Amino acid sequence: MTRSITTEPLTPETFAPYGDVIDAKGAPDKIINQGKCGRYHDRALVDVTPDTGGRVGVSVFHAELRDFPYTLDLIERHPEGSQCFVPMSADPFLIIVADGPDATPHAFVSDGTQAINFHKGTWHGVLTPLSGNGLFAVIDRIGETPNLEEHWFETPWVVTQGRS
């Protein structure tokens, strides 16, 4: 049995139930640095459960490039903190989210200029760069208590590329 989903473009509206789209579209919120820099202010909520002893940290991930069709056999979530992925090159990446392990996943493709921040507890696919160097700055919870739950699909999903 094959189950499939098709990607769609990443927009703040379609991604809102799962997290924040971080980009520099439109006019900046503030002009800083002697008028030489536009600040796109407060674009995502970094949310860490306060009573677990964790803190916010910045890491760098180096992920292997992937292709379409993509086989989705695992989703995960982080119940104690949000997780923000900022590509370190202007290349698109695949973003998969789900309302739960039994729900049909949704697949988005960034336009290469967007970063994303998953809300705390959002089920999502693993980091999936489609081109470029696979480097991402990741802002998330660092701590001693468990902050990862995984779900393996008995029947994987096949993700195909839709419109850009």
Rank of each mutant, 00 (worst) to 15 (best):
R66C: 12
A107L: 05
S82T: 08
A98W: 00
A98Y: 01
E144Q: 10
V58D: 05
I139Y: 12
E76R: 02
F93I: 04
T145Y: 02
E80W: 01
Q114V: 11
R55A: 10
E144N: 07
Y70A: 07
K120E: 06
G53P: 05
I116W: 14
P129G: 14
L74K: 01
N147Q: 00
N133S: 05
T104L: 06
E80C: 01
D111G: 11
H106Y: 12
L65T: 03
V126D: 04
T145R: 02
P146S: 12
I75N: 06
L127G: 02
R66G: 12
P101I: 13
L94D: 10
D111Y: 08
G54P: 01
R66Q: 11
I142S: 09
G112D: 09
G112K: 02
A63S: 12
N133A: 11
D73Y: 14
T128H: 06
P79S: 08
H124D: 00
A115R: 01
D99G: 07
F85V: 08
F136E: 07
I139W: 15
G57P: 00
D91S: 12
L127K: 03
D73T: 03
I139A: 08
T104C: 03
S89H: 06
D99C: 04
P105W: 02
E64W: 15
P87V: 14
Y70S: 06
Q83E: 15
F136G: 08
P105M: 10
L74P: 10
P146L: 14
V109P: 00
F61I: 15
P69T: 15
G121H: 03
E144F: 05
R141Y: 10
